[in-house]
Amino acid sequence: MRWALLGIVAALALVLSVVLGPAAVPLGELLRSDIVWNLRAPRALLAFLVGGSLGVAGAGLQALVRNPLADPFLLGLSGGAGLGAVVAIGLHLSGPWALPIAAFIGALAALGLVYRLGLIGGASLDPRILLLGGVAIGAFAAAITTAIVSLADAAELRNAFLWLWGGLSGASWDSVLLVALYAPIPLAVLLAASRPLDLLALGEESAGYLGADVEAVKRRVYLAASLLTAAAVAVSGVIGFVGLVVPHIARLVWGHRHRSLLPAAFIGGGALLAFADTLARTVVAPRELPVGVVTALIGVPVFALLLRRWTIA
């Protein structure tokens, strides 16, 4: 029943995002409309894939660091991606994929640095250092980005921030195909780690006694979640709250078993982002809101409710 309901919600979010938009497309012409086929449909699918990826990455990271406030963007990836994007614009790199590729490289560089910091105490990956290192590397990259933007003459550099705030305007069938081919690998890695992630909730030592290869799981989960987030930020900028709130909502309904939690977080995250993007495109039409603003407007009250629930419990 829960899965059927989630499926209906996801299907509804996708249908609404294809049917609704700032341009008036009569229902009878939906299937023939260029706007629907070339703009709305890829955008809806990309929103679903990105939202789903962020939901799963958030659920995986929260389990890894055993911290309910862990968000995929706390790991410094947004700062690295932003720096990559600004450098690409500053160097006038041309080509339709220059910005996403540069952002992806920036995110990977941040990932590498944070990972290295996580190993600073020895061969064991310390989740607390990962979080702190992520915050530090993200802040460092953001500071360099701001310095470049404020010292540069090019007006377009200031617009890089608009891209970084998140949005799905760049959605096309190419970007959908790219994410659809790329995301299943880290998603499968995370899903395969479901059982060890359940065990990690008992503590690293207990998980080890129960047969989990704790160090290998931590590395796999961190790298897979980060690679998912890096791809998401490369095609859509930084879209906050999906990776934070969706795992919590999914945990309320599906419990703490990751074999159910991760698929639920994927479908729930996808539905939330598709729905948020429909709102972003339509509520102030012909203008458009950054989708990150909508996810925050939805996510913050939900998160406040969850906090209240925990406090009472």
Binding site: P22, S169, R287
Partner: peptide, 11 residues
């Protein structure tokens, strides 16, 4: 100036 959807420009 304002942010708009690409489909608004198409329409």
């Amino acid at each position: 100036s304002a942010q708009v959807s690409l489909e608004t420009i198409v329409a």
